[in-house]
């Protein structure tokens, strides 16, 4: 439970985080104007987005001081999210679409 005094102290923190989020957005766009190589651009943009997302979750959504039931639910979500993000790598490891080499003997037996 947040008391009125706690919230009063947090107001400055909310405004600071808001300003930082604006700043990081500007940095993301500025980094994009530099025209980095695609892998570097993806890395930079996603690192900044992750920092921004963490700030929103921890400060605005008060995740930095939440109850363990919420952490438990989010850990389960995180596991599911990692599985979902792993799906693309599974699609490149399967054999769907790969031509099957028919052994010559089997081919001969058909005739």
């Amino acid at each position: 439970m947040h008391s009125a005094d706690d919230v009063k102290k947090s107001v400055r923190k909310y405004l600071t985080v808001g300003a930082l989020l604006f700043m990081f957005t500007a940095i993301t766009v500025a980094a994009n104007q530099v025209h980095l190589a695609i892998p570097a651009a993806i890395t930079v943009a996603l690192i900044i987005a992750t920092i921004k997302g963490s700030m929103v979750a921890s400060v605005f959504m008060h995740l930095s001081a939440e109850k363990r039931w919420i952490y438990g639910a989010l850990i389960l979500t995180l596991v599911g999210f990692i599985v979902l993000m792993s799906v693309p790598s599974l699609t490149v490891r399967d054999s769907i679409g790969t031509p099957i080499q028919v052994p010559a003997a089997a081919e001969h037996a058909k005739h």
Partner: peptide, 15 residues
């Protein structure tokens, strides 16, 4: 909703 957009913006507009 804001957090989702924070990821959508670079993914769709910048990369």
């Amino acid at each position: 909703v804001d957090l989702v957009w924070i990821f959508l913006f670079p993914v769709l507009y910048l990369l």
